[in-house]
Amino acid sequence: MQRVNMIMAESPGLITICLLGYLLSAECTVFLDHENANKILNRPKRYNSGKLEEFVQGNLERECMEEKCSFEEAREVFENTERTTEFWKQYVDGDQCESNPCLNGGSCKDDINSYECWCPFGFEGKNCELDVTCNIKNGRCEQFCKNSADNKVVCSCTEGYRLAENQKSCEPAVPFPCGRVSVSQTSKLTRAETVFPDVDYVNSTEAETILDNITQSTQSFNDFTRVVGGEDAKPGQFPWQVVLNGKVDAFCGGSIVNEKWIVTAAHCVETGVKITVVAGEHNIEETEHTEQKRNVIRIIPHHNYNAAINKYNHDIALLELDEPLVLNSYVTPICIADKEYTNIFLKFGSGYVSGWGRVFHKGRSALVLQYLRVPLVDRATCLRSTKFTIYNNMFCAGFHEGGRDSCQGDSGGPHVTEVEGTSFLTGIISWGEECAMKGKYGIYTKVSRYVNWIKEKTKLT
């Protein structure tokens, strides 16, 4: 034993070699072989497995989906700052455009905790909710729209109204504003409101030439003092309507412009014939205590009207009353817009006519005020429907199939267009061939041609 100890002390290297040989010859039971080890760690190889990531292109799944990435790591994937920024906006807080917040056709661009709407022409605001041009839906104005110097929408209202708090709607500024039905039992019968379409306001006024200088022999019209197929109006439903009495009662109609003036057809009036105007009328054979009678003290036909040349060209006249009318729910003026808007309103496509005229061709006159909704007829169809001249200051309205029309005794009465609950004068009943005849239409004086003249002559002093 002493000898062994001496050998170990003198030859430590020998001992180490012996131990190493023993270990190498022993069977290893701690580690699995290569094949079995792979069965336990069965993990798919990654895209760049075996390579240094710093030297390969980034992978979106590896960089940002398996674990949260930084902007720089995302930049490695896209290799483009702009594309990385677009991805980053949604990656950080989701897609803010998912709810489609942009209105009126706006395009949404996502941002971090926010979004941006790219608005089409005519709109602005956070969600493109603000109209900035009158060309689109009248700028959301209830009545009139004008573009300011910086191309912003400025709404306005006709006389007797003021802008509401929203700067879009119009509200009454006087007790009985024009064009409004205020009798409670008839307010439910107000005709369907007309909503502004998209309009090209630059070209809204037709490029028409008034044929002022045409000389033409007097034409022989049949029954051209021209509501057939209409309905009984309720008291106060058309408070701007008046009836004219002269040699015979209810020979023509008219509309209240203001307390002192009536507008009617020029062919209705004769110099030297006494005319009485009755406002607030409903049943011409009954006294309903809503009527107001006034005498006409002055007749002003349009300066281009000449019955000797043509009885229905420039067929418009103004009547001055001896005493002002007292405005109330049964006696209310009709609204008159400017030339541009009167023309736009007419193009809405349908209007209402009213009167006490004959209820059928050569038949009896109506006792109760009649009204009828009539569609506008395109000019080409209008011209083809008659052998008589249709001037540019006239328009056609009615039904091709016949059966409904204005008729004798309705002449001078109103053709009105309702705009968001307020009625505007767009025409004056003038003439036609018979009444409600198939293929024939009622012919009306186009008020847009005469609004400046009306307003100039009827100013209240």
Rank of each mutant, 00 (worst) to 15 (best):
A279M: 02
H303S: 08
Y161D: 01
G349L: 03
N138T: 03
C435D: 04
Y47S: 13
I210N: 05
R364P: 07
T276R: 10
E401C: 05
F78A: 05
T194H: 14
E79N: 15
N304W: 08
K387F: 05
K89E: 08
K146T: 14
E124C: 03
V326Q: 14
P177A: 10
K126H: 10
R294T: 01
E193C: 05
H361E: 11
I256V: 07
N138K: 03
C170T: 02
P120S: 11
T209W: 08
C155I: 01
G432N: 14
K39M: 12
T445V: 11
I15H: 04
T417P: 00
L52R: 15
V277G: 01
P235F: 08
E401P: 14
P197A: 13
A164E: 05
P12V: 14
T271P: 12
I15E: 03
I299N: 04
R449G: 13
D212E: 12
I40V: 13
T381V: 12
E433R: 08
G421R: 09
I297D: 03
V377H: 02
D111L: 10
S25E: 05
E54C: 04
K446C: 04
F31N: 15
I112T: 08
E418W: 06
W356C: 03
N343I: 04
H303L: 05
V368N: 07
G357D: 11
V228K: 10
A397Y: 01
E10N: 15
K362C: 03
G357C: 14
G94S: 09
L60K: 15
F78Q: 15
N36Y: 05
A337N: 00
K146V: 06
E231I: 12
C117D: 01
K68Y: 07
E129A: 04
V30N: 15
R83M: 07
D150A: 09
E67H: 04
N295C: 04
E27W: 04
C155N: 00
E420G: 15
K347F: 04
N135V: 06
C252Y: 01
G413N: 05
E434T: 14
K137F: 08
R298P: 00
E67I: 04
T422R: 03
E286M: 12
Q96H: 09
G272L: 05
S350T: 13
V368Q: 14
I262Y: 00
G432A: 14
V353M: 04
N42T: 13
V174R: 09
H415S: 01
E281K: 12
E66C: 03
H282P: 06
I454P: 00
D110C: 03
L60Q: 15
G403N: 10
C335Q: 01
N213I: 08
L103H: 11
V243K: 09
A192C: 04
P239N: 02
L376A: 04
T426E: 01
M8R: 14
V451G: 04
Y444E: 00
F176A: 04
N222W: 08
D405K: 14
H400P: 14
T85Q: 09
N310G: 07
K68M: 08
P44E: 13
E98I: 08
T190W: 11
T426I: 01
K293H: 09
A173Y: 09
K137D: 12
G421H: 07
N245W: 06
G254T: 00
Q216D: 10
K362V: 05
T342F: 00
W431I: 08
E285C: 05
G122P: 07
F360E: 15
I210T: 13
T225K: 11
K446F: 02
V181R: 12
I429A: 14
S187A: 12
V195I: 10
R379V: 11
K438S: 14
D410T: 12
S329Y: 06
T461E: 12
N59K: 15
L346R: 04
Y305Q: 02
H302R: 02
G179W: 01
R384Y: 06
T186H: 11
E116P: 02
R358C: 04
E281P: 09
C435N: 04
H314R: 02
V202Y: 13
V181H: 09
T133R: 05
L41A: 15
T461I: 08
E76V: 15
T445D: 02
S385M: 10
N245L: 08
S49P: 14
R449P: 15
E285S: 10
D322F: 02
G253H: 08
H400I: 14
N48P: 15
A207E: 12
K109V: 10
F176Q: 06
V273H: 12
T458V: 06
C69G: 04
N36V: 11
E66Q: 07
N295L: 06
E208W: 08
V4K: 14
N393Y: 05
D223Y: 06
K274P: 11
S187M: 11
V296S: 02
T225V: 12
T381C: 05
F345K: 01
A366Q: 13
V377Q: 08
H282C: 05
S70W: 05
C396T: 01
D110F: 04
S430H: 04
M394I: 10
E98G: 08
S406F: 15
F196T: 09
R379I: 14
E286I: 11
V153R: 06
D150L: 08
T426M: 01
G439Q: 09
L321W: 01
G363E: 14
L325D: 01
V183E: 11
S411M: 13
A266Q: 02
K109Y: 05
A366M: 09
F144N: 00
C382F: 03
I214G: 07
I300L: 10
T381Y: 13
V56K: 05
V199G: 11
K146C: 05
V174G: 06
